[in-house]
Design a protein around this nucleic acid. Structure first.
Lengths: 331, 331
DNA sequence: CTGTTAGCGCTTTCAA
DNA sequence: TTGAAAGCGCTAACAG
């Protein structure tokens, strides 16, 4: 690997001059510049970003911590982050935590050691205590779907409570009374908020909700298993509000397993509007979340913090009810 | 940010001793080690990986270049890479190229500057010429689904030709004679191979294939548009073999648009077996590709190269025909 | 077991 | 417009 010194020798200039053309400073005579450029090409020289970063204190790397790429919720979000990061010459580290706080902490440690300029965390599951050293370390952080107080902290939020409330309203408007909540991770703030919105809406209408809450493992499989429990241990349900679409899809399969047809026997409503939602049978009624947009906004927020520009500390999106075929009028 | 020097001062040892405990060398008295560890904790010290890498010449970062996370083919592959990388303490840079050779080249440049230890490229689209400097630079490369000769090069391949051939055989066994090929990117080697397999199989059976080949833009939309063309400009087709599942799904929509029902009027077979394939209506007959496994294998190959261990330079997977509901007997 | 010194490849004063 | 020297935070010999 050729170094800046090799280029300098070959071009018969000092290393400082080479440095100047790398960072294209205007203080270089055109002819000199060309000589240097030529030498760089001939040597297939690539400036060492490590050495540069060591002195400039910026790596142009951002960390992106998510639960699992394989969950269809994330790819678009990732793409949003990557697109704006790339436009500004940043690279992104992708980190899958499987909603495991320990893994998350390990990643945060790794990212800090690698001196990333900032971190975006989607659905962080670590406790505030564990997060605290990082929070006070001054490294810019953007949380997606988690509210955290701190100086250099941005938040891209969803109105979880309100949306859950809306879900119940919609189901009730269809005549449903026995509604179950199929929850996500108990560690997640967003699950808490959606659950509370659900409960509040039920309480406001004097509807019973206890024992209808199942929280558990994520994904289609988790949804399947939890729904089976819900179905087997509770008075006949007529509707289920699921924490996310994958859970909802698992729920649909569980209903099929118990010979209940959706939506005739039981209505199911999801959350996220992933690609699959529009393609399964029955097509899933759900709440659309602007995943790509949120990724972009989170990355922009982070970049603004890095550039010491002004920025909104918090942006809240309101998911839009997207009615398809998995819910219907009862009686 | 505290440095190794701060820790040394606080623990009243030399920086070398701190360095020893960081890399946990055994040559440190237990009591000293504890003192150092304590100082590190109190300072919330994180070793600067940049400085370390500058001298050790390894970053424990690998680059992963793909077309688009948003294409359901990739998340599992990414996860496979990430899982084995992470197990060995590596981070991965995710790079989306949209099958654009220029973007790919820019990313390669960026990755080399950041001194990544190796790069995995899935479906690389750059020409050999453009790739050459990188190939000869000695940085370990693993290609997924592209054959490239080079010293430090590994390949994780699919039997594209054979699978395409099998697809035609299957369709012919169902009685089909007018079969179209719905192709992927003309820049991609894998598209070339699948097309050739398709052509060979048709020729071997004395079946006409000309004008039935459409190659174009990727994704559902590309599949939709291309299929419309295919349908409108050719003698009645009875079957389509698509380069990938997303294209196939677009094709299904195009058929619906032309009031052709699948599989009664036209059979469609895909490639990849993405999650969606089993969920759409009709459930897609396709070839299953071990995406997660391939990601793992690619990452392991790369890690072996980095560790100077022996390794298979090339592994070939044979996709498995997965029969579902999108193809049926004709006449 | 522990410390001193040099240097990784770059940028940054400060001079020339 | 160009260059010399110092230093970013760490590891690697080599002494002690």
């Amino acid at each position: 690997m050729p170094t800046i010194r090799d280029v300098a020798n070959r071009a018969r200039v000092s290393i400082k001059t080479v440095s100047r053309v790398i960072n294209d400073s205007p203080m270089v005579r055109e002819s000199t510049k060309e000589r240097v450029l030529k030498a760089m090409k001939e040597l297939d020289y690539h400036p060492n970003a490590l050495a540069r970063s060591l002195v400039t204190k910026e790596t142009r790397i951002i960390g992106l911590i998510i639960a699992d790429v394989t969950n269809p919720y994330f790819p678009e979000l990732i793409r949003g982050v990557e697109d704006v990061a790339n436009d500004s010459g940043y690279n992104v580290f992708l980190c899958n935590t499987d909603e495991n706080p320990e893994k998350e902490l390990i990643y945060i440690k790794l990212l800090r050691e690698k001196q990333v300029d900032g971190i975006i965390l989607s659905g962080s599951r670590t406790s505030c205590d564990q997060l605290n050293p990082t929070l006070t370390s001054g490294i810019p952080l953007v949380f997606i779907n988690r509210r955290v107080k701190g100086n250099k902290v941005g938040m891209v939020m969803l109105d979880n409570f309100g949306t859950a409330y809306t879900a119940v309203e919609y189901l009730v408007s269809l005549g449903h009374k026995n509604i179950g909540y199929l929850g996500g991770s108990t560690l997640g703030q967003s699950n808490m908020e959606r659950k509370n919105g659900f409960i509040q809406a039920m309480v406001d209408r004097g509807l019973p909700y206890h024992k209808l809450i199942a929280e558990g493992h994520p994904g289609k499989k988790g949804g399947y298993n939890r729904t089976l429990e819900l179905l087997d241990t509770n008075r006949p349900l007529s509707a289920i509000f699921a924490y996310d679409d994958m859970l909802a899809i698992g729920a649909i399969e569980a209903c099929r397993e118990r010979s209940l047809s959706v939506p005739e026997d039981i209505s199911i409503i999801g959350f996220d509007d992933i690609d699959l939602a529009a393609h399964i049978a029955p097509r899933l009624t759900t709440f659309s979340v602007p995943k790509y947009e949120m990724g972009r906004v989170a990355a922009n927020m982070l970049l603004n913090m890095l550039g010491k520009k002004e920025f909104e500390k918090e942006i809240v999106y309101i998911p839009k009810l997207t009615i398809r075929d998995s819910c219907c009028q009862v009686n």
